[in-house]
Amino acid sequence: MDVLTVKDLSVSFYRESGEIEAVKHVSFSLRAGEILVIMGDTGCGKSVLCKSILKLLPDIAKIKTGQIFLQGKEITHYTEKEMQKLRGTVFSMVFQNPMTALNPCMSVGAQIAEAVRLRNPELSRRERQDRVINLLELVGIDHPGERAGQYPFQLSGGMAQRCVIAIALAADPAVLFADEPTTSLDVGVQSQVLELLLELRKKLGMAVIFITHNPEVAAQMADRAALMRDGELYRIGDAEEIFGKTIPNNCGRID
């Protein structure tokens, strides 16, 4: 069963200087519980593709053609109100730079608690705090009680990204968008975070759209992979088929 289906999606930015076609006629579908890697060079439209599905683009960006289906239901023309109900419940997102994605003026506990409260408004304060601690444990943070009281600037990049992931998981999402979640991290930490995402997917069974420009990371994460270039998604298939069994570094040149 497909959780998310995108058909013939085109997105353009309209500036005074003219139209910028960032995404052109992209079609793909995401199966329940799988990790779909979207790979392509910087600037090819990966982030715009995922933000257009989430309707997080600025007003100058418009969906020109295409349809988006969530669990078989068309959401292409959902209003902002309707999208708000999907964000933080069905959809979650992990960002490229955790240090700027977290609000610098709020403790991470408060930021996770906010997501929990929006998802489960029925929880008492006590239950909410327990949930925050659980989430922090889930993403592998030691001493979650103390960490929760800390501010983003007191955390390392890897630690901060774990907190961002905890916020994303608070939604208990059906689809997790991960937009280059390890690009800004140190190499050692990168693999830890990738391991964590793989483990979480296994545990929680959500589908993941994983965006990267790094072929090695792509090969490590992918169940299936889609390749993008200049706003076009020109190839999609199982990981073995796309990356081959051996040298993932070649994938960029496969046509």
Partner: peptide, 22 residues
């Protein structure tokens, strides 16, 4: 325009709520 606004909106907050709370 800051990054944390996107994260806040991904929690399901409205633009107004993000403005006031974040």
């Amino acid at each position: 325009r800051a990054d944390y606004v996107l994260l806040a909106r991904m929690k399901g907050l409205s633009g107004k709520q993000v403005l006031y709370r974040h």
